[in-house]
Structure formats: C-alpha cells, structure tokens
Simulated assay, not measured.
Amino acid sequence: MIIYLHGFDSNSPGNHEKVMQLQFIDPDVRFINYSTLHPKHDMQHLLKEVSKQMEMSDDKSPMICGVGLGGFWSERIGFLSGIKQVIFNPNLFPQENMEGRIDRPEEYADIATKCIENFRTKNAGRCMVVLSKEDELLDNSRSEEALSPYYDIVWDETQTHKFKSISHHLQAMKAFKNA
C-alpha cells in the first residue's frame, strides 16, 4: 500500500497522474485529502486517516509519499505512523512561504516544536528524498542542507516544483519500499 498526500494545490490534475504512476509500484494506492489551510487540524486528520488506512491493509511494508506540502506531512506522519516515506520537493518551511495563503502559517512552526525532538535522527534511513534542480518555488539547496544529514538525497534535473512525472524514480522507490 502507498498512501499519497497532495501538495497545497489539492485540485491539480497532476495528483491523479502521480497516483496512476505510483500504481506501477503497488496497485494499492490510497489518496488522502486534507484541507491544507488549518495545519493543526490537518495533522490530526492525517494521523487518523493514515492509521485507518494501515488497519485496512495487510501490506507488511506500507509507504507514504507526498509532493511539496504533502512532502512536509509525509515525513512527519510517516515517522509517527512507523512507515517509510518518499518526499518530492518537500516544503520544509511552510510557516515562511505560506503566509497569506493559509489561515495560520505559524502553526507549522508550532508543529515542528511539538514533534518528537530530533525526529529526523530517529527516522534516519526511512525517508527517500527527491529534490528538483528546477524547483521554481522552493530553495532546494536549503532542503538538502536540512535533510542530507539524515536521508539520501536524489536530485532530479528536469522536473519543476509540482513534479508532474515521478516515473524516473519509480524503480528506486519500489526498491526502497521493499528493502
């Protein structure tokens, strides 16, 4: 089972395309929708939904995957749920770049302090990170600096922030999921 979390643009047709691509790894791909506007509510909702999906699956190696804001949530929710994560261009600093787009961006900073201290140290090796060199929205060198001490970083030369095509990374994701 692969759980897919969309980014800030929940209505993007690219979400359906990514779900279809993920089905090449595992036919059981589950899309979880969340508001994106209320971080604390989103975290509670996502934890509950991921737990429910895991209970309904007998997959011994479930995985959670997300792009952008979905990457932010996939890393945290995956860690708290005890499953591997694959994150594409994660928005690691939404409290800085979501101002004016969501109700309370400062809640992201609060969530970061409420998560288990040094969670990335405890999560080391359980998250695959794919960063785009052509990301027009985020400074992925900053993401690399924050994540590389804990996770292997894969650089993509062509995709933009929304990562329309994840197909070049499917084999590595499959190997990571099954390792």
Rank of each mutant, 00 (worst) to 15 (best):
I2V: 11
Y4M: 08
L5T: 14
F8P: 01
S10Q: 12
N11E: 11
N11L: 14
S12M: 03
G14I: 11
N15P: 01
H16W: 08
K18R: 15
K18S: 09
Q21V: 08
Q21W: 03
L22E: 04
F24I: 02
I25M: 05
D28K: 13
D28Q: 15
R30E: 10
R30Q: 11
R30M: 02
F31Y: 15
F31P: 06
F31Q: 09
F31K: 11
F31C: 00
I32A: 07
Y34K: 09
H38A: 09
P39D: 08
P39M: 03
H41Q: 06
D42M: 10
Q44E: 15
Q44V: 04
H45K: 09
L46H: 01
L47Y: 02
K48G: 01
K48P: 00
E49D: 06
V50F: 01
K52Y: 13
Q53G: 03
Q53L: 10
Q53Y: 14
E55R: 09
E55C: 03
S57K: 03
D58Q: 13
D59F: 04
K60D: 11
S61Q: 12
S61P: 01
S61H: 12
P62D: 12
I64Y: 07
G66P: 01
G68L: 00
G68A: 11
L69T: 05
G70T: 07
G71K: 04
G71R: 07
W73Q: 02
S74G: 07
E75V: 09
R76T: 02
G78I: 02
S81V: 04
G82R: 04
I83E: 12
K84L: 11
K84R: 15
K84T: 07
Q85L: 02
V86Y: 03
I87R: 10
I87V: 15
N89C: 10
N91C: 10
L92F: 07
P94N: 11
Q95H: 15
E96H: 12
M98E: 07
M98A: 06
G100S: 14
R101H: 10
R101M: 06
I102C: 01
I102W: 10
I102K: 08
P105H: 06
E106K: 13
E106D: 15
A109H: 15
D110R: 11
A112H: 10
T113E: 14
C115R: 12
I116T: 13
E117K: 12
F119W: 15
F119E: 09
R120E: 09
R120D: 05
A124M: 14
A124K: 15
G125F: 07
R126P: 00
C127H: 00
M128K: 14
V129P: 02
V129E: 05
L131K: 08
L131E: 06
S132N: 07
D135V: 12
D135I: 11
E136V: 08
E136T: 14
L138I: 06
N140V: 10
S141C: 02
R142A: 12
R142Y: 12
S143F: 05
S143D: 02
A146H: 07
L147I: 01
P149E: 08
I153M: 01
Q159L: 05
T160I: 00
F163A: 12
F163Y: 15
F163Q: 07
K164Y: 08
K164E: 11
S165H: 13
S167V: 15
S167R: 07
H169C: 13
Q171G: 02
K177I: 01
K177W: 03
N178L: 08
A179I: 04
